[in-house]
Design a protein around this nucleic acid. Structure first.
Lengths: 215, 215
DNA sequence: CTATACATGGAACAGATAATTCCGTTCTAG
DNA sequence: CTAGAACGGAATTATCTGTTCCATGTATAG
């Protein structure tokens, strides 16, 4: 697995190509599966401009590739949360967090793929952390009086789902439009709000239900 | 097709059952295809509690059933628009229209199914009418100063798509949640708005692109 | 230069999935 | 009692898709 004399710098010729393919494949998988969570694996290979073998050399199955995407998506989500928490103003931090989640489209990489693979320990832990950070960000902003009081943290799941559903044109265009509607949504979340919102918000159980594996 | 002595009242026995099945099948199709636009036709039969024959006796193909659903969806949309226009206050009428579109989930019956069947003349005409009424409702409210000026009518397509994407639990629960987020969205659409919205809104071409048949 | 191990492309395989057809059965009307 | 409408659901056929397999090409060690 590690040929003795190999120092890790040159990465010349074939090996460089292989490293490049690592990127190409992941990027293609992101694009394909965010556009269509049920896409065939051949579509990923085609989009990456490689053969199917190149995929199976790296991931032993479709499930494993999906798990990788989901894990990366959770990391992006967590990164967005940290970015938000790094901002002192509670509202600004909260808004920054939402922007990150939306531009990375972490929803499409996580929930939208959930149910199509067996979750791992690692994934579970990441999701717990993601959850805790979300609550921190939300509570900090709401307790500062910035978020209207009749919104709860679980409303965010529905918000992400809505924004992620916007699919017009290519990825870049979709990202721009999502930011447009995020700006609208942020307006509506701001305290103090107007008339009370109807109906109970999503329950914790309803949120979690969407993660269960339907093998 | 019309047996001479048959007056149209009794509808007894087998014939009554058949009329009932008409309803059962349409209702099942609505439920199944709004939940999953790519669902197999067998799922509809199962949900309706009938055999596959009962379906094919009424619709010569899956496409024809989908066309029927789409047409009905457009009629519901048009009805909602008329309901809105019947209200004198421009904003209240606009809000009522949106509520209709959301509770009937016409988006799931129309756009979400579009692209899976060849459109007919009839469908085309209905969609033109739907479009005109939408513009009327929107312009009336915006010219009255009730809708913030940096929103355009084509933003509504994105709004409908977002609200329709909310799928938690069963149909009824989803409908309630959609109304919750519609209330938020209405808040954000209200004039005068706060900071300007980023990015250009959807273009007419982007909207129409979503209707094209991908046979 | 040449042998070897690594990567790769893509055809072949096997198992699902799903639209549609077909046939035997049931029930109603007359 | 009989003809035929309405039906249930198995059989058929076509397609799709995850995975395996093997021939080919390439870079590096010696």
């Amino acid at each position: 697995m590690y040929s003795g004399s190999m120092t890790s710098q040159p990465l010349s010729g074939r090996r460089k190509q292989a490293a490049r393919n690592d990127e190409l494949i992941l990027e293609a998988a992101r694009a394909v599966f965010t556009a269509d969570p049920g896409a065939p694996i051949a579509a990923v290979a085609e989009r990456a401009g490689v053969g199917i073998s190149a995929l199976y050399r790296r991931y032993s199955s479709k499930e494993e590739l999906l798990r990788k995407l989901c894990y990366d998506g959770l990391q992006l989500y967590i990164k967005s949360a940290h970015d938000g928490l790094a901002i002192d103003d509670p509202w600004d931090g909260f808004a920054e967090f939402l922007r990150g989640v939306v531009v990375y489209d972490t929803n499409a990489l996580t929930i939208a793929l959930a149910g199509t693979f067996q979750p791992t320990e690692e994934l579970y832990h990441a999701s717990v952390l993601a959850n805790e950070l979300t609550i921190q960000l939300f509570d900090r902003a709401q307790q500062a009086g910035a978020i209207r009081p009749d919104i709860v943290v679980d409303d965010l799941a529905a918000l992400f789902e809505q924004l992620s559903s916007i699919k017009f044109g290519d990825d870049e265009r979709s990202a721009h439009l999502r930011l447009r509607y995020l700006a609208l949504a942020l307006d509506s979340l701001k305290a103090p709000g107007t008339i009370p919102l109807p109906g109970p918000p999503p329950s914790r159980e309803e949120i979690e239900q969407r993660w269960v594996y339907k093998g």
